[in-house]
């Protein structure tokens, strides 16, 4: 079937299998490989992207369902070569090690901070329950989220 998506501001049309998952559309059709697949039960969150600004797990959305919608992946987060505050905070706070969970984790935090610009540590931890990381023990991911929130408060 034919689908039309806007991915990181770029219109992409393609004829795809009905059952094609959004994450495979992003990786194989749009050739954007930052978004990873870490499980097959919607448990790990590695594939988290924004659909019309809301975080979704792209392994559990069909490309067909995303047709006509806007998708943002981590590749589309920086503006004019400047990292997004959440990306910057991950770098400053050492919020990543192997990097596999990172794109999904960053997108989940972008979405979380949009809903709650001033979260407590516990709110960040609860908000990230659907995103697994095996390397960092979450400590610096949580710090990065709080640091990005602080930066948002300063700039607001």
């Amino acid at each position: 079937m034919k689908v039309d998506l806007t991915v990181n501001g770029k219109d992409i049309s393609a004829d795809v299998e009905d059952r094609m998952l959004l994450v495979h559309f992003l990786r194989d059709v749009a050739d954007l490989t930052a978004t990873n697949v870490g499980c097959d039960t919607t448990s790990c969150g590695a594939c988290t992207v924004l659909l019309d600004g809301e975080s979704v797990k792209s392994c559990t959305v069909l490309a067909a369902q995303a047709s006509g919608h806007e998708i943002t992946t981590v590749e589309g987060l920086a503006t004019n070569g400047e990292m997004h505050p959440v990306q910057r905070a991950f770098h400053q706070e050492h919020g990543l090690q192997c990097g596999f969970c990172t794109p999904g984790m960053v997108m989940a935090i972008v979405s979380l901070l949009k809903e709650n610009p001033d979260p407590s540590e516990q709110q960040v931890r609860q908000g990230l329950e659907g995103n697994l990381c095996r390397c960092t023990g979450y400590h610096n991911i949580v710090r990065a989220a709080l640091a990005a929130a602080d930066e948002g408060k300063v700039s607001a």
Binding site: T33, A34, N36, V74, M83, H91, H94, G99, T102, V106
Partner: peptide, 14 residues
């Protein structure tokens, strides 16, 4: 802070 990170954070690792 790590030199690896900007690539991993903006384009993704390979």
């Amino acid at each position: 802070i790590r030199t690896e990170d900007p690539r991993l954070l903006t384009a993704g690792a390979v």
